[in-house]
Design a protein around this nucleic acid. Structure first.
Lengths: 224, 224
DNA sequence: CCGGATCCGAATCGATACTG
DNA sequence: CAGTATCGATTCGGATCCGG
């Protein structure tokens, strides 16, 4: 199992050995949203083979990046250690960087709740978040509730059938609710105005108006 | 060749597909120091198979991360594109993060000029660099000249036999010159004082004094 | 259903040899 | 110098199976 060594004594190399093996950073991405059980991770990473998931979880534990915790009569969860959580700015920066290389999605590409949550976090610009905003975004079956307060973003995942586990839904209704798809990236990139996004069907406003969508587009942006 | 897809439409996933395949980030690390020819990369990454180096260089070009440039009658070099250079803060952050997990070096671990250059960059703290410093550090056969001016660090590699290619050596002599080994990480981590490092043989001062080594230790630090 | 372990074919990687 | 070619060693992917 021991990762084949790169044979260098160097911090970058050590980090690379710890977290860049196949699937490892995506596991970390999902754990940055919150603790997850084995099955959650498997669902959030539909294409990961179970033996690889097992192996990575084991390696990440040995590396001190994640921890396996038994919840009181609620099963097991994996969560990031403090050390692992320090990867957050790195993963967010990678997401921002990679965003600019996203082409069109392939046919079987999926958007998961965790990946969309992290995508919102990567695109969030605190410096533009002087005013609060409550919104709800839906991409396929994934629905998220976002709340911006005091230049901070909170995202809660809305489970399709049951109410959310753990965290409580922010009280009150979202001012803005919209459905969208892959084309949302043009709004985030600034290559489509909110008005264009709506007229071209990239975004469908279910509640609220263009002005609120404009606020959203100011808050979440990754420029080239 | 085609990297097996992770099947997710997400910026983090895109970045992971572009730069986390085996050896890719180490190639990028070395190119962050400067343009390198194929043979330079091969020497700086002694354990990389040549077919993998070829494959990665090809993939990174296709991803727009690096570029292949023909130098006027001087052969070919690979260099980062502007897009690729934006990975610099990410690689530096990864190096800082990984530093804290570096144990003792394995027997066949090497320290290369490029890895040591980047290590200095990862550990450099501009906020502590109010005063200038000229130093020269040697680890095994690798010798580097560092210059701190206006809270900025410049590192030049000193080739063992011939004078450095391209950049010119900073004029004047270094105030501080020392030889060291893997144990230097204890000085960087702050778990060894400069005095202890010298008395324990971790650092051998060849020119300058303990006070100057103390300045070095303030400038280059990664705390737990 | 949760949390994996096992097995096996396919793809990738590593080491070496070789070439324009 | 700048890579290709080859081939055995590893790892990955997909499916199945198992204990609680």
């Amino acid at each position: 199992m021991a990762a084949r060594s790169y044979g260098q004594y160097c911090g970058v190399t050590t980090a690379v050995e710890l977290v860049t093996e196949r699937w490892a950073l995506l596991i970390i991405r999902d754990l940055l949203v919150g603790p997850r059980r084995y099955t959650d991770l498997k669902q959030g990473l539909p294409k990961i083979p179970t033996n690889i998931l097992s192996a990575r979880l084991k390696e990440l534990q040995e590396g001190g990046v994640i921890r396996r915790v038994a919840l009181a009569r609620c099963g097991l969860v994996y969560e990031l250690t403090d050390y692992g959580r320090e990867l957050e700015p790195i993963v967010l920066a990678l997401g921002r960087w990679g965003f600019r290389s996203m082409g069109e999605p392939k046919d079987d590409d999926v958007v998961t709740a965790d990946s969309l949550t992290m995508a919102l976090r990567t695109a969030f610009r605190p410096e533009s978040a002087s005013a609060p905003l409550d919104f709800q975004i839906r991409v396929g079956p994934v629905e998220l509730r976002g709340q911006v307060r005091d230049r901070e973003l909170t995202v809660v995942q809305i489970a399709p059938p049951a109410p959310p586990v753990g965290g409580s839904l922010p009280s009150g209704e979202a001012e803005l609710r919209f459905a969208t798809g892959p084309g949302i990236r043009h709004l985030i990139a600034g290559t489509l105005t909110p008005a264009e996004a709506v007229t071209q069907g990239v975004v469908t406003i279910e509640k609220g108006n263009l002005k609120l969508l404009g606020r959203f587009a100011e808050l979440f942006r990754i420029e080239p």
